[in-house]
């Protein structure tokens, strides 16, 4: 229900915004392309108009219908800066890189972050707290793209132990060979660390706060009264219960991770859709920007759905329809 609503909202936003622009965005693009030396056949121009159902002469609901029909055919329009490549082609090419970065970053930040938070809650003395809490808050306040900047300037430009840009070295051939895989990992480490370190700060804080709340619950007190060790209480009793809200938090944080990824990919010139959207923004490639927004929305909805499934699997009270 929520997921459908969000998707419809994203469609409406994508449909409405170009129509709010002064002038005729399609005409502007066509004019610019011709000025740039492209030869556009009348069919091509007609095709560009047909995309997004953009036609000021038709009633708005007909335009919306045309737009949906185009989308159902997987047609997101033609890129302006990468003309004549289609938006869906560009996104399909770049999306795997982003999914690769984001999923690893989330995994290496959420899993350790949750465990650290869990055990930090068991350790509650003033001295530990007075260093630990500010430190975590500071880490989660760092802009992740700036962290990437520092990594690049130190590890790549100065020490030269990591590459400055890209997803793999141009000396390797993409495919299932070891050299390629190693090169990909080599290129991904700094971007992943930039994303993961900052995100982990937030996950630790959240898990710790949830744990502190759960540890005051009656069932934990009962476990304590039964003489169970603190370690066991933290691991089995409180931990399992605090995990559920943390999964919700994980789903909610996906939006921020994808958003931060735009900036991190831009810093590392990483060929995912984050960097693609930065390129689209600087080149005023409207179709590309609209298409990317839709893809980001779908990615987040999928992440939410997966979190829901994980939640239902862990929580016996929840059943999925």
């Amino acid at each position: 229900m929520l997921l459908t609503g969000t998707f419809v909202a994203a469609l409406l936003i994508d449909f409405t915004l170009p129509r709010l622009m002064p002038g005729n965005p399609v005409q502007t693009e066509v004019t610019n392309l011709i000025a740039a030396g492209f030869t556009l056949s009348p069919e091509a121009i007609k095709g560009m108009y047909a995309l997004y159902g953009y036609n000021p002469n038709l009633p708005i609901y007909v335009q919306f219908y045309d737009y949906i029909v185009q989308l159902l055919h997987g047609n997101l329009g033609v890129s302006y800066i990468f003309f004549p490549q289609s938006v869906s082609y560009l996104i399909a090419q770049r999306l795997p890189w982003t999914i690769f970065l984001v999923s690893i970053a989330v995994a290496v930040s959420w899993i350790p972050g949750t465990f650290i938070g869990m055990f930090a809650a068991g350790k509650r003395n003033a001295k530990f707290d007075s260093i630990f809490t500010p430190l975590l808050n500071f880490i989660s306040s760092i802009p992740n793209f700036w962290l990437g900047f520092l990594f690049l300037i130190f590890f790549a430009a100065d020490l030269k132990i990591f590459p400055l840009f890209g997803a793999y070295s141009n000396t390797v051939t993409p495919g299932a060979n070891l050299a390629f895989i190693l090169s990909v990992l080599h290129h991904a480490i700094l971007p992943i660390l930039s994303l993961a370190i900052v995100a982990m700060g937030g996950y630790v804080i959240h898990m710790r706060n949830t744990m502190v709340g759960v540890m005051g619950d009656d069932f934990v007190l009962v476990a304590r009264a039964k003489g169970l060790s603190n370690r066991r209480i933290v691991r089995t009793y409180a931990g399992a219960n605090a995990l559920l809200p943390n999964i919700t938090m994980l789903a909610i944080s996906m939006g921020a991770v994808f958003g931060g990824n735009i900036l991190v990919e831009t810093i590392f010139t990483y060929p995912g859709i984050g960097y693609l959207s930065a390129v689209a923004v600087s080149g005023e490639d409207y179709s590309l920007i609209l298409g990317i927004f839709l893809i980001f929305t779908i990615a987040i909805l999928v992440a939410n759905l997966m979190a829901d499934l994980l939640y239902a699997w862990l929580d016996p009270r929840v059943s999925l329809i």
Partner: peptide
């Protein structure tokens, strides 16, 4: 019936 607090889940029955 009792359901998890603050759930954002759309599909929870």
């Amino acid at each position: 019936s009792s359901a998890p607090k603050g759930d954002h889940l759309a599909s929870v029955a």
